[in-house]
Amino acid sequence: MQKEYLGEFEELVLTMVGILQDDAYGNAIVNEIKERIGRDVNLSAVHVTLYRLEDKGYVKSGMGGATKARGGRRKRIFTVTNAGLAMLRVKKEQQIQLWKLVPQLKIVGG
């Protein structure tokens, strides 16, 4: 596999897109991150990251339907692509493997 690099924040956002499914747009992701892991993130940072992920091919986007809420403006809905899903999976595997290498006993001792 080619050396694709996924940053920590990119991974977080990508995961959130996966979680939110059909409702994955900028604002929702900000709220979701706040709710799930209590981290305040900036809307613009999320947007920039989303576009970067799109450039890398991990997500794709399309315009959703208009709602009355946002002054009639449409949402840009992001969905995880197969490549994105694969990337997430690889990340998970890597982490689990690395985790396994950490001597667990020492921690239990506390």
């Binding site: 747009y25 900028g26 604002n27 900000v30 809307l43 947007h47 576009y51 315009m63 809420a69 946002r70 002054g71 403006r73 449409r74 949402k75 840009r76």
Partner: peptide, 15 residues
């Protein structure tokens, strides 16, 4: 091409 969705997100957060 990004304008509408960004503006929308901003307005939503504003609301």
């Amino acid at each position: 091409e990004l304008h509408e969705s960004i503006e929308g997100d901003l307005v939503e957060q504003f609301e």
